[in-house]
Design a protein around this nucleic acid. Structure first.
Lengths: 180, 180
DNA sequence: CTAATACCATACACAGCTGTATGGAGATTC
DNA sequence: GAATCTCCATACAGCTGTGTATGGTATTAG
């Protein structure tokens, strides 16, 4: 029969991502995770060689969901709507706890920093393309993409959910920045 | 005679801030710090009640230097120059390792978060005032101050020093955003 | 039915950090 | 010059986390 009480590596990664978003990198340890999942560390060390392998797997999993979120932004702006407007609306209304956790981690960890930088490049290229599609010169579009993306990072880091009116004002300003 | 080989609490704080900027919050522990200073933890526990008291003292010290940096930005724009331009020039050419470390710390620590939020409010108010002094309406100035400050945070977090040309382009764009 | 395999519990040795208790050396005060 | 105070070293107990070794249970293969 299917043993549903058996754990897979993905189960550990799911718990790891959830814990990372809630309590940060410092909570990404074998024993607390095992206690939270109701098993012993024997399971952990069966699925992962050691802690750093688990960390690497967590980062790989995050890279995939982060890249997925990019194309999700593209998809949501499918038809006639302004893609940049849709993207900003979505991004500045989410909670971004996982984003914040990974970047906090990346501040002083080389592996996490590499993952973050890879995602940054993809997102920056995408935003820069959206701005250039609005008829902005290449060099100006690069600077403005940086500013928009930094603003997103600052918002994600501060973790203060905006009031609805304030959010719309900010998004309107950002769109205004992108267009001219 | 003056015992220059004696340590004061301030010596520990200086070493703590340096270590925080270089290796992050996770390196803010008594034993590694003592080893780095060539003494034993006996000195640490004489000057500080426990680790959390040391952490609180570090945060207090950071609050003071962070607030100091604000008025330093004001002072540097003393005479006829544009104060906001001077501020942006300075801010986007610094390394900001300590800023990055404290914010990484604050992502999942209540005490650090309180310190960061206090500094954020002061800086935001100051930037918003500079923007309003340029003849921008209050509500718009608030949104633009948020964007400019977030951009600063994003830059501080990414920790990629900009090339000179790129920095000047970004600062020019930010000034353009502030003015209209 | 037996053997192999997947998955996990338990136990052990080890390391790093905390906090405290105790004592000691150097300076200071009277 | 004895006592006191300041500052630090040492030693100890305790906790938490790591990694491994070993064994057990349940499922699957033959």
């Amino acid at each position: 029969m299917a043993m549903s009480d058996q754990l897979s590596a993905q189960d550990w990664l799911d718990q790891g991502l959830k814990t990372l978003a809630r309590r940060g990198f410092s909570a990404l340890k074998a024993e607390p995770l095992a206690k939270a999942m109701g098993v012993s560390r024997g399971s952990f060390y069966w699925h992962f060689r050691d802690i750093s392998a688990f960390h690497a797997a967590i980062l790989k999993a995050w890279r995939e969901v982060a890249a997925e979120a990019i194309i999700a932004g593209v998809e949501s702006a499918s038809c006639d709507a302004d893609p940049l407007a849709m993207l900003l609306q979505r991004v500045f209304s989410e909670r971004l706890a996982l984003e914040r956790a990974v970047r906090s981690w990346a501040a002083f960890d080389a592996a996490a920093r590499a993952a973050v930088q890879a995602i940054d490049r993809r997102r920056l290229d995408y935003v820069e393309g959206l701005i250039r599609a609005r008829g902005v010169a290449a060099d100006v579009a690069q600077a403005r993409a940086l500013i928009l993306y930094w603003a997103f990072l600052g918002y994600a880091l501060s973790d203060r959910p905006l009031a609805k009116a304030q959010r719309e004002a900010v998004v309107a300003e950002l769109l205004h920045i992108a267009s001219l």
